[in-house]
């Protein structure tokens, strides 16, 4: 006897409708964040705890990433710059690429991996074990206690961690340069910052506050909407990382374009 399986063709319209449904639901979640999130009681202690969770515990990860990327970038670029007789421009090139793009985006992506999964899983498991319902029954606001604190912690700490990653990246580049060509540290720093404006450093660092907001908001949303058991919690954690990472890259495109319009190109 042969078993015949009937496979229903994927209904594309249904998938699109579901996707749009989710986008709309996320929009409502963000709207309620701004409408209801900033009301008493202020959860200052929880905010500080989350800043510690986001910041202090991520210093090692982002620091090592910055140090390694700075050194690798110096190694990879030296050969090409020598070909054009521009080895002296190496610190300048490192500073430009690390401060303007690699530092902010890499920091945000590394943190999206660490925090997106953590927040998504933590809030998701609080949802399935009814801890979020318990907060509500206590006449408290889960949105204030869980979401606002995490989103704000990300918004505040992402730029701080980006400055840290940038600094370590430049230090990694210096270490590699010092080992390869015994460059003087003062000369390295002078050359590195010749064509960097303060507005560049500020704009490119502060854009990570937006990335932080994305990671916090998306992960909290996916955690909040968990239904079912542990499998759904795992999925929320994974989806938080994927969605945050994609949105960071898309937001970067938008922010870079906007900052070029506002502050102009470095060459202009």
């Amino acid at each position: 006897m042969s078993l015949r399986l009937t496979i229903r063709p994927t209904d594309r319209r249904e998938s699109i409708a579901q996707f749009l449904d989710k986008v709309g639901d996320f929009g409502r979640f963000v709207a309620s964040f701004f409408r209801d999130g900033f009301r008493r009681p202020w959860e200052v202690r929880e905010l500080l705890r989350q800043m510690d969770e986001v910041g202090t515990r991520s210093f090692l990860l982002t620091g090592v990433t910055g140090l390694a990327i700075g050194a690798v970038l110096a190694m990879q670029s030296r050969g090409t710059l020598i070909q054009f007789g521009a080895e002296a421009m190496l610190p300048n090139m490192l500073a430009l690429s690390i401060i303007k793009e690699i530092g902010p985006v890499l920091t945000a992506l590394v943190l999206a991996g660490r925090l997106g999964a953590g927040i998504g899983a933590e809030i998701g498991s609080m949802r399935v074990t009814e801890q979020i319902d318990a907060i509500e029954v206590m006449a408290l606001r889960p949105l204030n206690y869980l979401v606002v604190t995490r989103v704000l912690a990300c918004v505040i700490m992402f730029p701080v961690l980006t400055v840290w990653t940038d600094a370590l990246g430049l230090f990694g580049g210096y270490l590699e340069s010092a080992l390869s060509s015994q460059i003087d540290p003062r000369l390295y720093l002078d050359t590195a910052f010749t064509s960097i404006r303060f507005s560049d450093v500020l704009a490119d660092t502060m854009k990570t506050a937006i990335f932080g907001g994305i990671v916090g908001m998306v992960s909290c949303y996916l955690g909040f909407r968990v239904r079912g058991g542990t499998r759904a919690v795992g999925q929320a954690a994974m989806q938080s990382v994927v969605a945050s990472s994609v949105l960071i890259i898309l937001a970067d495109l938008f922010v870079v374009r906007l900052s070029l319009l506002l502050f102009g190109d470095i060459a202009s």
Binding site: E122, E130, Q131, D133, V137
Partner: peptide, 11 residues
Amino acid sequence: YLFQGGALFDS
């Protein structure tokens, strides 16, 4: 309210 699993905050 006593929830089914207790809903104690495990953090």
